[in-house]
């Protein structure tokens, strides 16, 4: 889980790289990493599938919510009729056991939910994190104390447990995917706030910020025009790894039956009953599981690539001493 990577110090909160180098340099550094490029391609494809879900299912001639009772064998507990879980020209990936809903449609619409919820949650986390982080760094001492202690508590509470518990008390009239995104977003901002606070404290002391302050700029203008560009790099780095982590949380909540609820499809929710049907319709298990794995894996690799491109120093620190050959060569050189 990628939130773990962040805790390992793989990304330090001390990323004091102003990264004035600009967007072009970022792209150049990202382009040199083959794995990150492939991952970016996969992610782009997934986003495309999610966006084009109505189009794709229209092409197939199905939708994700219509029941097809005639396609499942009710005498045998609702096993899809036909070979390979009911794969046919009409239903490209077969149908769901018991209900007969089209699997291809549920999978593509599930991509919308997974990616949409994770992105929305990330936006909420970043927004809260930046606001509170900057406020803590620029505010009075007691404001900083209050916000920092609050952040400590938020970080201490396990994201999974808190979102699970919070989902119990919100009214069910709310659209479920929006709710899940909000809950994950409202709980998972702690580390962003910490990073932003640390970075802002460093930036605050720099000359161009002092100059702005001396010219009589207000706190708000300084934050927006002098500080935001400086905290962009660490925030983007962290946010890139928050997205796969949020996907996992959403899938887990929906798997437990408290996240996105039927009839809205979600990959995690599709897996809830999948173990019972793995023999009759293996794709009912393999497709959502595979989709989850590929998505989270690609996003994690991409996130790693973004980190390397934004903060080459941290990356090279991690790569210290690669290859014993180089070391021994250097040792020989020293001897000569």
């Amino acid at each position: 889980m990628s939130e773990v990577l962040l805790a390992t110090g793989a990304i330090g909160t001390d990323t004091s790289v102003p990264a004035a180098s600009g967007v072009r340099q970022f792209w150049r550094r990202l382009r040199t990493q083959r794995a990150a490029l492939v991952a970016a391609g996969v992610v782009a494809l997934l986003v495309l599938v999610a966006l084009a879900a109505p189009l794709l299912t229209a092409l197939e001639g199905q939708d994700p919510t219509t029941y097809h009772p005639s396609l499942v064998d009710s005498a045998r507990g609702g096993v899809p009729i036909g070979p390979l879980g009911g794969i046919s020209g009409d239903h490209w990936l077969g149908v769901e056991p018991q209900t007969g809903r089209d699997l291809f449609a549920r999978l593509t619409y599930g991509a919308r939910v997974s990616l949409g919820v994770a992105l929305a949650a990330t936006v909420v986390q970043v927004a809260i994190g930046i606001t509170l982080g900057v406020a803590a760094a620029l505010g009075k001492r007691w404001v900083d104390q209050l916000l920092s202690r609050f952040t400590d508590i938020i970080v201490a509470m396990p994201l999974m447990i808190m979102s699970l518990a919070l989902l119990a008390i919100v009214p069910s009239s709310f659209p479920r995917p929006v709710l899940v995104a909000l809950v994950i977003g409202l709980i998972g901002w702690g580390n962003i706030a910490r990073i932003v606070r640390a970075q802002t404290l460093t930036l605050k002391e720099l000359d161009h910020v002092s100059a702005a302050r001396l010219s009589g700029w207000g706190t708000w203008s300084i934050a927006r025009r002098e500080l935001l560009p400086g905290i962009a790099a660490p925030v983007i780095t962290y946010a890139a790894l928050l997205v796969p982590s949020n996907i996992t949380v959403e899938a887990a909540l929906s798997f437990l039956g408290v996240g996105v609820k039927p009839p809205t499809p979600s990959w995690g929710q599709m897996l809830t009953a999948a173990d019972v049907w793995y023999q009759a319709a293996p794709q009912y298990l393999l497709l959502p599981a595979g989709a989850l794995f590929v998505t989270v894996f690609a996003l994690t690799v991409l996130g790693d690539g973004v980190r390397t491109a934004l903060d080459p120093r941290a990356a090279s620190r991690l790569r210290v001493g690669t290859g014993r050959r180089r070391e021994s060569k250097a040792a020989e050189g020293g001897r000569a």
Binding site: L292, F297, R324, R326
Partner: peptide
């Protein structure tokens, strides 16, 4: 085994491990 083939395999496997939800591994 840094810098060798076996290290690259291990790195790949652990990265895949961080990317797999626990209930997917458990189910499989």
């Amino acid at each position: 085994r840094r810098g060798r083939f076996s290290e690259r395999v291990l790195t790949g496997v652990t990265l895949a491990g961080t990317a797999t939800p626990v209930f997917v591994i458990g189910l499989v």
